[in-house]
Design a protein around this nucleic acid. Structure first.
Lengths: 135, 135
DNA sequence: GTGCATCCTGTAGCCGCTACAGGAGCAACC
DNA sequence: GGTTGCTCCTGTAGCGGCTACAGGATGCAC
């Protein structure tokens, strides 16, 4: 059995975040020692690690909880996990696409900026009356 | 002179967001008509549009304000704008890189999941005692 | 006068933490 | 017995940038 600091070290979830998870009902409240301090079992530390791994993969807390439910359900098959993963993957890819579009737009603006220029093309674009039409 | 709804339409910033910007001091409070309604000038609408364009490019509000200051300072050269743009570009690229790493990791996990599999490789990985070492 | 659109203020919620303030308990060392 | 230093506790506020109401006033067209 482990104190919160040790649980944090072992799970990779910070102390403050563990308390936050408990407050929000994301993990079950661990039992307390006689002096009122939280005491964590191996299983509870594994649960924290599970959530951290989901978060590291970019899953929301809600998705992490769904995955945990699937993990603990012996009847659940791989498909639902795969489905959740694929949805998330699609989301990541759309975010990459948006960022790439941003990268492209911004690269062009920055490239046209040069030292000592009187008119800044980037500011001109930002201040223009009309939006630039989509390419 | 325009009511807030018209200002929203012309600037591309929603009514609620315009009020939020005013509350937060991001824009100056516009003058009011006799019945207490906000009245926006062309210049104020341009200011809103400027901020929206910055936001569309992914700049923070703080950066947007810095850019506005640079835009209104006749002594300021292009370099500072370029510098801000380049910093932001670096940030975007590092976010892309993180998302790509996520994409790669998640793709592999999802690919190994197949219908009807008894053990789910993704859940196995999430529940493992030890972290997967970096490649 | 009636309906609808538009406007107002104020407040709460989103997500997932993070950062305190202010205090208690416990072990080790002088 | 005192002091230092570490860990723990509760509770609350803040981050960014909105968004979404509730509950009410005003204005305009028919």
């Amino acid at each position: 059995m482990f104190a919160i600091g040790e649980a944090a070290r072992r799970s990779g979830v910070s102390i403050e975040t563990i308390r936050y998870y408990e407050r929000e009902g994301i993990i079950a409240a661990p039992r307390r020692s006689t002096n009122g301090r939280r005491v964590f079992s191996e299983a509870e530390i594994s649960a924290l690690r599970f959530i951290r791994r989901c978060r590291d993969l970019g899953f929301s807390i809600r998705d992490a909880l769904a995955l945990r439910r699937l993990a603990s359900d012996p009847a659940a098959g791989c498909e639902k996990v795969q489905d959740l993963g694929q949805r998330h993957l699609a989301d990541i890819r759309s975010r990459i696409a948006s960022l790439r579009a941003l990268d492209e737009a911004l690269s062009e603006l920055v490239a046209n900026c040069a030292e000592g220029k009187r008119d800044c093309p980037m500011l001109d674009r930002l201040m223009s009356d009309r939006d630039v039409p989509a390419p």
